[in-house]
Design a protein around this nucleic acid. Structure first.
Length: 599
DNA sequence: CCCCCCCC
């Protein structure tokens, strides 16, 4: 019978940030629940919240992202008994956040042990457990002598690790934390970029820093560029302290950290020469077939065989009118899908891998050209034939069977226009507006679920040419309906709907424009019938219009800007409307419940 | 303090 470490939850709930002994465990606990918490940036890495119990109390903790695999492959789940071998405590304002960094599973099929209770602040500690050890004093980390100033001053003494406090996990960094030192590998270093705008000019560079617990972006401006750009080398490991921790601007970051570092004048950077087992890169690969599930503009990692390499070419940026070199690679993987990825600038020019290599891409952008496409950011990395398991598997697969097979490209759904409702691409009205979809001189496509609040009653349909495929408006010329396009006249027009719907979801309201198919779906009758009702029985017409309200549909929409009366406006066109499909929805929810995060 | 990541 496994013995839980009674009292460890209470002790952790009282821990101070430097309580090393307590953080290194081991604590034998049982997981009462593991739940995925709100998704971060699209395509980002999941975060899992764990309720753990010591049999007496339970306590909430977060799983460090590098342990996500244990949830995904069901190594851990509800009622798993595990030994926590390392954790850290992060203080966000008044709240204490416990992050599990390392664990070992003891039992997976246990029953719930005991009747653990929540920890009530100010309550006495539970009885009959070992007393809480006194926290060790914080080791000072300020003895490091490697800031810019120190280097410039005449101080040749090499910094020593001995006087330093413990190394802080990147995962635990926050603006509320001071006196930290991280030990991290530079996994990516940008070129030096210069800018010049209304607010001034300058130069900057950034790096991606990684340890076992996570990644964080670091940026150096101006003086910090001169000082640190040559010092920080890609692939090397450094001790870094006294950088400023800022909120990351999610929009521009492809990392899953809420924060980023700004290198300041007194920031200390010192290379770590010891052998370390810090991983080189952490990947969260998606299969090429799975790209369809990711929203446009999300960021992902892929590993694939380069099946084709296009020659270097050049485009002119519409934004800057500058020429930019690019190169396109066609990637394939075991999912049977192929996708094109674009390399830019230096990466395009210097690409010279041969013989269908395996390449692992990290932090690439998902586009929707040709259904799905990929594009490198300057912060994206690519590793040719990396020394990882996934690479060996791909190599073996391709050399044995993959090379001879054909691949499925992602398709533009609905023949050029995205026409179908896609659950994975659902946006709220608020998101559509905030993301300014359709406002960049091009059409953007999205799916949404919304409820009709109001239908504009005037001009609900127009008299159209009955010729198949024409649908042009016809004009009443003395009782005869004339089509200019077909150069024909008809006894009667065929009415077609032209709809303006006020549609709302939980986040807001928008006007959607729809054509004949939308009207038929909403009213359940052709426009000719509705016109007849309108002209003969206005009360009945009003009832039909009214009854159509408060009905919820799945919409596929196209957002595009146009000019109207001299001003620009954004129009949302409905490319498909469908009633809610409860079975399909239930199945999708069932799949979510069965997925790893729901347990 | 940047934050552009391009084209078809």
């Amino acid at each position: 019978m496994v013995q839980l470490t009674a009292g460890c939850c209470y002790r952790l709930s009282q821990a101070s940030p430097d309580d090393e002994e307590l953080f290194n465990g081991p604590h034998t606990v049982q997981f009462l629940s593991i739940k995925k918490v709100n998704a971060v940036n699209p395509g980002g890495v999941d975060r899992f919240r764990i309720i753990m119990s010591d049999g007496i109390n339970f306590l909430q903790a977060m799983l460090a992202t590098q342990l996500n695999g244990m949830v995904n492959d069901q190594t851990i789940g509800k009622h798993t008994i595990a030994v926590i071998e390392k954790l850290t405590c992060n203080y966000v304002q008044e709240k204490r956040l416990i992050i599990i960094l390392a664990l070992r599973v003891l039992e997976t099929t246990a029953e719930k042990i005991g009747e653990p209770k929540p920890i009530i602040e100010s309550a006495d500690p539970p009885q009959n457990i070992p007393s809480v050890p006194t926290p060790a004093p914080v080791a000072a980390s300020s003895s490091l002598k490697s800031s810019f100033q120190h280097q410039q001053s005449n101080n040749p003494a090499p910094p020593t690790r001995a006087g330093r406090g413990s190394i802080f996990p990147i995962e635990g960094l926050s603006p509320y934390q001071n006196n930290w030192t991280i030990k991290a590998r530079v996994t990516q270093k940008s070129d030096i970029k210069t800018w010049s705008n209304a607010r001034g000019e300058g130069k900057l560079f950034n790096v991606t820093l990684m340890d076992e617990t996570g990644e964080i972006r670091g940026t150096g401006f101006n003086l910090a560029v001169d000082e640190l750009y040559p010092k920080l080398e890609e692939g090397k490991v450094y001790y870094i302290s006294k950088a400023r921790v800022n909120l990351a601007k999610k929009k521009f970051s492809n990392l899953t950290n809420d924060y980023e570092l700004s290198f300041e004048r007194n920031t200390e950077v010192e290379e770590c020469h010891e052998v370390t087992n810090l991983p080189m890169v952490k990947y969260h690969f998606v299969q090429l077939s799975g790209l369809e599930e990711l929203p446009k503009d999300s960021i992902c990692d892929v590993i694939a065989i380069v099946k084709e390499v296009a020659p270097l070419s050049e485009i002119i940026s519409k934004q800057t009118s500058k020429a930019i070199t690019k190169r396109e690679l066609t990637l394939v993987d075991q999912s049977g899908y192929s996708v094109r990825i674009t390399l830019w600038g230096k990466q395009a020019e210097q690409y010279n891998a041969e013989d269908s290599p395996v390449i692992a891409f990290k932090g690439v952008k998902v586009g929707d050209f040709g259904g799905r496409s990929l594009s490198m950011y300057s912060s994206s990395t690519m590793a040719v034939n990396p020394d990882i398991e996934e690479c060996f598997a791909l190599r073996g697969w391709f050399d044995s069977i993959g090379a001879a097979q054909s691949f499925q490209a992602h398709a533009n759904t609905g023949g050029g226009m995205m026409s179908g409702f896609k659950r994975a691409e659902m946006r709220s009205i608020q998101e559509v507006k905030e993301a300014q979809l359709g406002q960049q001189d091009k059409a953007d496509y999205f799916s949404m679920r919304g409820t009709i609040m109001h239908i504009k009653a005037d001009n609900i349909c127009y008299p159209a040419c009955p010729t198949a495929g024409c649908s042009k408006k016809v004009i009443d010329v003395n009782g005869s309906w004339r089509c200019e396009k077909c150069n024909k006249s008809f006894d009667a027009p065929e009415y077609r709907y032209i709809m303006s719907l006020a549609v709302a979801d939980w986040s807001g309201q928008a006007w959607l424009q729809g054509f004949n198919d939308v009207g038929v779906a909403v009213f359940g009758m052709p426009a000719n019938d509705l016109v007849e009702i309108r002209d003969n029985n206005e009360a009945k017409f009003n009832v039909i219009l009214h009854k159509a309200n408060c009905t919820t549909y799945n919409f596929a929409c196209r957002a595009k800007q146009d000019e109207y009366n001299g001003t620009m406006r954004t129009r949302y066109g409905i490319s498909s409307i469908s009633p809610l499909n409860y079975k399909e929805e239930a199945m999708a929810l069932r799949d979510q419940l069965q997925s790893n995060w729901a347990r």
